[in-house]
């Protein structure tokens, strides 16, 4: 579906991408990982036809720069940082739907499933929304249209656990007929969503591997945590995951989305000194 052949990009004598060769196929869910400055964003911008570069990129045999409209009709994109658009939410949705030949109603429906009532904010400037609301809206615009490639730059970073679960469900619906490229500087943020990992370092691919694809993206885990003693910092963190405590603050119960398990355990592991027991069980 996508062929990246010997792509290099130089900014002021600095080689940001150095001879990248990759093939991306339908059904691939790729974690594009690497530290800051490794070339992830540059590679994404080359794929979107926003940067000129050496080498060749073909999306279904079309070059993104020369055939912008045909190629970009097939690609949905969620940026890492929401753009500071002053246009009202309603107009942004209408604008995106018009240029992408999609239905604004689908965008509203997706935003509702992510917990954002976009209709309520129709006349509010996009830039005035909170970070999480902006992210939900951009995801809604990307998922509310038909595309063959979904490119997302740290898409779930600003989402609350409930919205993350809805987001994973939406991705699950698209996983068989859409390729996904999810960029992150931390693998644990996206590990459970993907079946392939590509790591960039100083503009080169240093890892390109398939990974076990056993996590059901729609699954939910029942989770119970027991502590040796109550701890306010732990309580603050775990409440953000939507957990509820016993009256003495020693026992916590809640749900974790299946693909979020690694991230959840990472968060809990910071309090390993006060953990007395963890029980996680997939809901049938």
């Amino acid at each position: 579906m996508i062929n990246i052949n010997n792509v290099s990009k130089i900014f002021r004598q600095t080689k940001v991408l150095d001879g990248i060769n990759l093939d991306i196929n339908k059904g691939d869910r790729i974690a594009l990982v690497g530290s800051n400055g490794s070339g992830k964003t540059t590679l994404i911008r080359c794929l979107l036809g926003e940067y000129i570069h050496e080498g060749e990129i073909l999306v279904n045999k079309l070059q993104p720069r020369q055939h912008r409209e045909e190629v970009l009709k097939q690609i949905s994109f969620v940026p890492q940082l929401p753009p500071p658009l002053r246009m009202p939410v309603g107009q942004l949705i209408h604008f995106s739907a018009e240029v992408c030949h999609s239905d604004p109603e689908k965008i509203y429906t997706v935003s509702e499933s992510l917990g954002l009532d976009a209709r309520k904010f129709k006349s509010q400037a996009f830039v005035k929304l909170s970070g999480g609301q902006k992210q939900k809206l951009l995801i809604s615009i990307a998922l509310g249209r038909d595309s063959k490639l979904l490119i997302m730059d740290e898409p779930a970073a600003n989402l609350d656990p409930e919205a993350r679960h809805s987001f994973f469900n939406l991705l699950a619906q698209k996983q068989h007929d859409t390729a996904m490229l999810i960029s992150s500087h931390r693998l644990d943020e996206v590990a459970a969503l993907v079946n392939r990992v590509i790591e960039l370092d100083q503009g080169k691919v240093i890892l390109n591997d398939q990974v076990a694809d056993q996590v059901d993206m729609e699954s939910i885990l029942d989770c119970e945590i027991q502590l040796t003693h109550a701890e306010p910092a732990f309580a603050k963190m775990i409440e953000e995951w939507g957990f509820i405590s016993s009256s003495d603050g020693m026992m916590w119960q809640g749900n974790v989305a299946g693909p979020d398990r690694l991230r959840f355990l990472g968060a809990v592991s910071r309090y390993s000194g006060i953990l007395n027991g963890i029980n996680m069980k997939e809901k049938s």
Binding site: R45, L48, R68, E69, L72, P79, P83, P84, L85, V99
Partner: peptide, 15 residues
């Protein structure tokens, strides 16, 4: 600079 081009030009609009 603010990233508005990055986002809006990822939509299928001719240059």
């Amino acid at each position: 600079e603010a990233g508005i081009f990055e986002y809006l030009l990822s939509l299928p609009i001719g240059l």
